[in-house]
Amino acid sequence: MRQEMETKKPNLAVRIFRFYYDGFRSMTVGRKLWLIILIKLFIMFAVFRLFFFRDFLEERFDTDEQKSDYVIETLTNF
């Protein structure tokens, strides 16, 4: 009987999945919060990052040497 119960125990991955699944299912306030988190992350990464916050040096130069030259030029040309 004990051996049968042990064999029926789900593996760790399944238990972790169920832990999170049950946790999310039984949320009340948390559901609204998750919705806010998802909307916020969407705005941050799909709107701000993609359209407004490109990496300035990455976008203009291919190599680190070019970036260094540009920054030295900018910093010392006063």
Partner: peptide, 10 residues
């Protein structure tokens, strides 16, 4: 990365 690139590099 966008507004403070000189600083980020430095």
């Amino acid at each position: 990365g966008t507004n403070w690139s000189n600083y980020s590099w430095f």
